[in-house]
């Protein structure tokens, strides 16, 4: 545990250092360049790109969470139960749409830039959260649900005080999955001119500069691993509190 924590702290420190002062890392990346090409991407501020990237992902994941948890609540209530089989099959089929296709198809409606990227991230983020929210809400022990009703909770009180808190670790796992997918997919957003860390990678691909590709990839990968771990830690803490092992 503590060894892992140290590794993560070091990774975070290096990541922050790179984002704040990328030029300081020139010696690391210089050997990868050819014919005197620049080793560090300087056309845009690395920190600003990272913040844009994270902002886009956060906005899309928050929106996806609100919509899919809301939807999962509706289809697990008696009046929405009719929609359950349909929502399951849509979730299943929807996941098969490749992100790049969603992205490209959103461009005609929304133009280039952050908007189609947001839509693609949002749509792609819906499904894992929805699936997990559904699992979490339907897996509440019958005895617990029965006790809540038997003690006089209204439908809404039971949902807010019992079912949602119990489903929370599973919902968080869905949000984690969506976030990691969105972090990677946001890089593809740069192909439709969204200003994300994908810009660095694309620039590397266009100019055949491995140093760019590597720094873009490493930053996104490190962000993804750190965020993944943070979510996992939170889920485990919650699950442990409830006496389950995650």
């Amino acid at each position: 545990m503590s060894a892992g924590l140290v590794v993560r702290a070091i990774a975070l420190a290096i990541l922050l250092a790179f984002l704040v002062a990328p030029e300081a890392f020139t010696p690391v990346f210089a050997p990868l360049t050819e014919r005197g090409a620049p080793a560090i991407y300087t056309q845009a501020d690395m920190l600003a790109l990272a913040m844009n990237h994270l902002g886009l992902v956060a906005a899309a994941v928050v929106a996806a969470t609100i919509v899919s948890v809301g939807l999962a609540i509706v289809v697990t209530r008696p009046f929405g139960a009719e929609f359950l089989p349909l929502s399951r099959s849509i979730a299943n089929i929807g996941q098969t749409f490749p992100p790049i296709a969603v992205l490209a198809l959103a461009v005609p409606a929304l133009g280039f830039g952050a908007a189609p990227t947001f839509v693609a991230l949002f749509l792609y983020g819906l499904l894992p959260i929805f699936e997990n929210a559904l699992t979490g809400l339907t897996n509440v022990q019958p005895a617990v649900r029965e006790a809540a009703t038997g003690m006089g909770m209204t439908q809404r009180q039971r949902l807010v005080q019992v079912e949602l808190p119990l489903a929370l670790p599973v919902i968080l796992a869905g949000i984690r999955l969506s976030t990691v997918i969105a972090l990677a997919t946001a890089t593809i957003g740069s192909t439709v001119a969204a200003s994300t860390l994908g810009e660095v990678i694309i620039a590397g691909l266009l100019t055949n500069n491995v140093a760019y590709i590597l720094q873009g990839g490493l930053v996104v990968g490190a962000l993804a691993v750190l965020i993944y771990d943070a979510f996992l830690w939170l889920e485990r803490a919650l699950a442990r509190r409830m006496g389950r092992t995650a």
């Binding site: 038997g150 003690m151 006089g152 509190r241």
Partner: peptide
């Protein structure tokens, strides 16, 4: 729901809320 709040209810397998402490469970 108002009727049920005036009637105590205990079931097999207790149905305690796993996310709440003992005190919070009793205080429901």
């Amino acid at each position: 729901y108002e009727l049920r709040r005036r009637i105590g209810y205990a079931i097999q397998g207790h149905g305690l809320f796993p996310h709440r402490t003992v005190a919070q469970n009793i205080a429901t």
